[in-house]
Simulated scan of single mutants.
Amino acid sequence: MAEKPEIWTIRKVLDWTRGYLAEKGVENARLETEWLLSAALGLDRVGLYVNFDKPLNPEELAACRGLVARRAKREPLQYILGTQEFCGLDFAVTPSVLIPRHDTEVIVEEALRRAPHAAAVLDIGVGSGCIAVALAKQLPHAQVWGVEQSPDAIALAQRNVERHGARVTLFEGSLFEPFGDQRFDLIVSNPPYIPTADLEALQPEVREYEPRAALDGGSDGLDFYRLIVPAAPEYLNPGGWLMVELGIGQAEAVLGMFSRAGFCDCFTAQDPNGIDRVVGGRIG
């Protein structure tokens, strides 16, 4: 007599996958398992538990296995699902852009607090467009521009601009190159800031999958600040602000650059973990 095929219910797949991903070094394995199975089965997370004892058919099992296999190789969950939330908005993400982090929301918060009347805003290194779009949605009177070297990133950012109906104009180029004598009330940037020697010690999700050009800040991680900070005053209106995100232990050096470039009212702002995450200053 032929053996009956093993029955895989949602509960059984959840339990097995959680243990499997944990063995592979995935943090928050239970939560990530729920997101993966929700995507594979077209359910929300509540729907998983309502249908706990539902057996999966072969097609559903294959869909689950495909997504789980990708995550077990440490491919980021956000690239697998294709989305990431930032400032309460949902953004499309692909391996052509850095995954938006909640730490980066600090730069948006500081920009809104210190420059609430900014009418012309520039985001340097726009990536997925998350900063530019978030600012455009919160500053409906402003025109926001974004610049990015990667054509693939620009294409994705444009999708996110259109998704949210944001007033953002994107340019392909380097730093201030496309803007001639244009002036802004607010310039923001989340540039690459990981020291080159530290890249190999990053989590596999970051090291193996996120774009190296969006991570590598040179030997000390400060290469892009040396380009952005001294040049920014020429592109700011009187009273305009420059704000940049930075990495652990970089605030003092970047504050020095701001001071030498003639900025006043310089500040640092911490992320939820108490790390100095943003440095900013104003041109008098």
Rank of each mutant, 00 (worst) to 15 (best):
M1W: 08
E3T: 07
K4R: 12
E6M: 11
E6N: 09
I10Y: 04
I10S: 03
W16S: 14
T17V: 12
G19M: 10
G19F: 10
G25M: 06
A29F: 07
R30V: 04
W35S: 12
L36N: 08
S38E: 09
S38Q: 10
A39Q: 11
A40T: 11
R45W: 08
N51T: 07
D53P: 08
K54L: 09
L56C: 10
N57L: 03
N57S: 04
A62L: 15
A63M: 04
L67E: 03
V68P: 09
R71W: 08
A72C: 14
R74M: 07
R74Y: 06
L77N: 06
Q78F: 05
Q78P: 07
Q78D: 08
Y79L: 11
L81W: 04
G82R: 10
Q84K: 15
G88R: 14
D90V: 12
V93W: 00
V97Q: 02
I99P: 00
I99S: 00
P100Y: 00
V106F: 02
V106S: 04
V106H: 04
E110A: 06
A111D: 04
L112K: 09
R114W: 08
R114N: 08
A115R: 13
P116C: 07
H117N: 10
A118Y: 06
A120P: 06
V121W: 02
I124R: 08
G125E: 04
G129R: 05
I131Q: 02
V133Q: 03
A134K: 07
P140V: 01
Q143I: 12
V144M: 09
V144G: 08
G146L: 13
Q149R: 15
A153Y: 05
L156Y: 00
A157T: 07
Q158I: 13
R159I: 10
A166R: 09
R167S: 15
L170Q: 11
F171Y: 15
E172F: 12
L175E: 10
E177N: 14
F179G: 14
G180N: 14
D181H: 14
Q182F: 11
D185H: 14
L186S: 12
V188I: 14
S189C: 13
S189Q: 09
S189T: 11
N190L: 09
N190Y: 07
L199K: 04
L199F: 05
Q203D: 15
Q203T: 11
E205N: 06
E205W: 03
R207A: 14
E210K: 00
P211C: 07
R212T: 10
A213F: 09
A214Q: 02
A214K: 02
L215E: 01
D216E: 08
D216Y: 03
G221L: 02
G221S: 04
L222T: 07
L222A: 05
L222W: 00
F224D: 01
Y225C: 05
V229F: 03
V229Y: 02
A232P: 09
Y235H: 15
Y235W: 15
Y235G: 09
G239M: 08
G240L: 08
G240P: 12
V244S: 00
G247P: 08
I248C: 07
I248P: 05
I248K: 12
A251L: 03
F258T: 02
F258K: 00
S259R: 13
R260I: 03
R260D: 09
A261N: 06
F263R: 03
A269S: 15
Q270A: 14
V278I: 08
V279E: 07
G280K: 01
G281E: 00
G281L: 01
R282T: 04
I283C: 05
G284Q: 07
G284Y: 00
